[in-house]
Write a protein that binds this DNA or RNA. Structure first.
Lengths: 148, 148
DNA sequence: GACATATAGTTAGTTATGCAACTAATTCAA
DNA sequence: TTGAATTAGTTGCATAACTAACTATATGTC
C-alpha cells in the first residue's frame, strides 16, 4: 500500500470529522450560552427558511443535504418548539410547506449573529482565497459523489 | 445584515453538511456493496488502529475527534462484531487498550482500497494544491476552535 | 497516610442519521 | 380512463452524536 493511499484516507478523516464537528460543537455551545434551546441541525433548517420561507420538505432535503426521514423528524421537533408550521400546499396535496412562526422570525438576527461570530473564530488566519478554494473543492466533491 | 455575513453562514453549511455527508454515504455504500457490514464510523476507528494497534479509548477519542461516550459505544459495537478486543492495561488499571482481532487485520487492505476508491471518485477534478489548501484550512479551523 | 483533584471509562437521556418499507397524491401512457 | 410509475411525506429499526452524571483508579499535596 502506497503512502499516497494513506494520505487520501487521512483527507477523508479530515473532511468528515474534524472541522465540521468542531464548528458544529462550537456553534451549539454559543447557542446554549445565549439561552437558545435549538440544535445546530435545527438551526441549519431555519437558516434556509430565513432565506426563503415556506419551502416544501423535499426542497429542504435538497438544500440541507438531508434525506426525507431526517427532515420529517427535524420538522417534527421544530414544530414541537413552535418554530415552524406545516401548511398543506393548495397546488399539490402531497406537499407540506414548512413556514416560520413569528418566534422563529425573531430568532433570525440573533442566531445568525452567533453563527457569524463562530465562523469568525473558526476562520482566524484563513484568507479569502483559501475559503473560496475550500468552498469550491467541497462543492466539487459533493457534485462528484451525487452525480449533479 | 450584510451580504458577507450570509456568505459565512453558507460556508458553515458547506463545511458541516455537504461534502462530509456525501463522502460518508458513498463510502458506506461501497462497503455494503463489497459485503462489508461495518459503518463508516466503525471504519474510522479501525483506520487508526491499523496505523497503530492497541490504543487506549482516550487516545482514540483524540485521534477520531469523538467524545468518550461515542468511543465507548463504537467499541461496544466493534467488540460485538468481534473486530476489536478491550485489553486491560498492565500499567494503569483505568485504561482499556483497544486491540484488533485477526478478522479486523484481514479487513485492512480491502477496506482501505475501498476508501481510496471513494476518495478518488470524490476528488475528480481537484488538484493537489487545492487538496493541500483544504487540509490546511480544516486543520486550522479545528485548531482555532479547540485551542490546540 | 489521607484527602482533594484529575483522568479513564460507562450509563442514561435526547436528538439526529441512514435505510427500507410504507401511504397518499399526482402524472403519464396505453 | 384506468392502471403503472413517480413523487412527497411518514414510520420502524439500528447506529451514532452530545451532555450530564456516574464509578474506579491514579496522582499530588499537606
Amino acid at each position: 500500500m502506497s503512502n499516497n493511499q494513506f494520505k487520501r484516507g487521512e483527507l477523508y478523516s479530515v473532511i468528515n470529522n474534524m472541522a465540521s464537528t468542531a464548528v458544529a460543537r462550537r456553534m451549539q455551545k454559543n447557542f446554549r450560552r445565549a439561552g437558545l434551546d435549538i440544535t445546530i441541525e435545527q438551526w441549519s433548517v431555519l437558516y434556509h427558511l430565513w432565506k426563503e420561507d415556506c419551502l416544501s420538505q423535499q426542497e429542504l432535503c435538497n438544500r440541507t443535504f438531508r434525506d426525507k426521514p431526517s427532515i420529517t423528524r427535524l420538522i417534527d421537533n421544530l414544530e414541537k418548539q413552535k418554530l415552524v408550521k406545516r401548511m398543506p400546499s393548495k397546488e399539490d396535496r402531497r406537499i407540506n410547506l414548512v413556514c416560520l412562526t413569528e418566534t422563529a422570525k425573531e430568532l433570525q438576527d440573533r442566531t445568525i449573529e452567533l453563527a457569524n461570530q463562530t465562523m469568525s473564530e473558526a476562520l482566524v488566519g484563513v484568507n479569502k482565497e483559501e475559503i473560496e478554494t475550500v468552498k469550491t473543492v467541497l462543492q466539487r466533491v459533493y457534485d462528484n459523489l451525487t452525480g449533479n
